[in-house]
Write a protein that binds this DNA or RNA. Structure first.
Lengths: 150, 150, 150, 150
DNA sequence: GTGGTCTAGACCACG
DNA sequence: GTGGTCTAGACCACG
């Protein structure tokens, strides 16, 4: 696993790591249930401190994207493991969408502008997903899934 | 002049000030050539440190949006000279929407689910807004700004 | 400000600090808007590392109880600063309550048992609040509030 | 024997196992004198490390709930000898409910608001449960447990 | 072996 | 001065 660290920029390293992983999960590059590199491993690969990786992982864990399992490893969450059940799921998405909308409205963007931008961005993300997924390029192979439940 | 400071968010204050001014220039709320409040004045109005306002103004000056004229004051440059502004606005909204989408996708929500929830929430927010201030724009009137903080 | 650290127990220090502060806010011992000790100060008072205090504060920040403000200090959040607006507020509470219920049910507790325990605990908390509040014991005096908006 | 492991939560696995067994003994699901699965067996059933099961059993043995008999097996002690069990259950629920209440109060929600939301959510959850398994208890039947994991 | 916590100490960004 | 980030290194808890 490789993550490009934008050496001189203002975004902190732990966020760059987290954002990249989130992106990879969103796009399907990291399959759900897949095991992430260990903290030590990724720290070594990227040449950063273990604590920095821990911080990135913990952030994602709190956000519900991955699951840090003491003594076992770190895994991409399966939707079913997410904020408990169906009703929870729906409310969570409501909250998530509401946040972005509230923020945009409070910054003075017009509803139509927001709507259009949203639609375009979502299409862009979907396209990104489709380009990654259908290839079955190693990461999502049987092997990757086999480990998932372990 | 009033600028809403998003007290507890991650964007630094000097950026919030700068972004808001850019936005106001972009939409014409601040006319070209118009004089901005003095550093002291704005700092007092917003209850922030003078250094923070200086930092915001200096950034805008460097970006060519305003002109800091030593001993005379601070003035808005001609918007037409700054395609930068419109782009800034658009990119900011792009970023904002992209964040929510990425998060939802990485949490395993389906695109259609996201799309529908978003649409519903936006409608709800619009309705909520209309109930609060059906008196028209309001946002730009001096009165509306006067005690926005409260 | 003093926090008793349960030296030999298994709860990590950063959690003990966070839980205590949460408790004090819940009970009204720390007024909303009130300023918390600086990271350095509290670290020194408790004889722990600055990073440990930062960690405790950040956790509370993420949970929406306090607000870490770069360069300014740390403050107890005012309800109005919480998860945005009224609708947000309601949804957030829904989610909060739902979590506990889901967990208790999944552990096999009967609904009536849950209901009664909840009612009793809430009464206990309310009583704790009343004992702290009406005295106006220094912390919630005018002085404390005056600083809040600063 | 099946124990639901809350894969991504903060409680360590060995405690989840121990708590569940205590709970089952407390409600009579596991009769006194009854033989528990062997360490190997349970470890395999749950897909966890043997050491983890050993740790759970040893804890219960120390607490007097079960009896580890070298070379013979593991047996449930007489519940009546253990007021400890009922208390454990009650305290656990207390803790669980207390957490949500403390959090909500510290976020500024009013007690009545909390009370009402809780009541509504509990009703909703109950209704949701009834729709899922209207076939009676089900929980204790061997069948229900067999593929609970899925 | 895997993640969790903590310290001591450095340097940075913001107000 | 206040919080934010990062490192190097230690020791612990869990599986």
């Amino acid at each position: 696993m490789w993550i490009h660290l934008n050496g001189d920029y203002k975004t902190p390293v732990y966020r760059q790591i987290g954002d990249t992983i989130k992106h990879q999960v969103a796009v399907g590059e990291l399959a759900q249930g897949e095991r992430l590199p260990t903290v030590r491993q990724l720290a070594q690969d990227l040449g950063v401190d273990r604590n920095t990786v821990v911080r990135a992982y913990r952030l994602l864990d709190r956000e519900g994207v991955i699951s840090l399992q003491h003594g076992r490893g770190t895994f991409v969450k399966t939707p079913s493991q997410h904020p408990h059940l169906a009703r929870h799921r729906r409310e969570h998405l409501d909250l998530l969408m509401g946040e972005g909308i509230a923020r945009a409205l409070s910054l003075g963007y017009a509803p139509d502008e927001i709507r259009q931008t949203f639609a375009r961005r979502l299409r862009e993300w979907q396209r990104a997903r489709e380009q990654v997924r259908p290839r079955g390029s190693g990461v999502h192979s049987k092997k990757a899934h086999r480990r998932a439940k372990e």
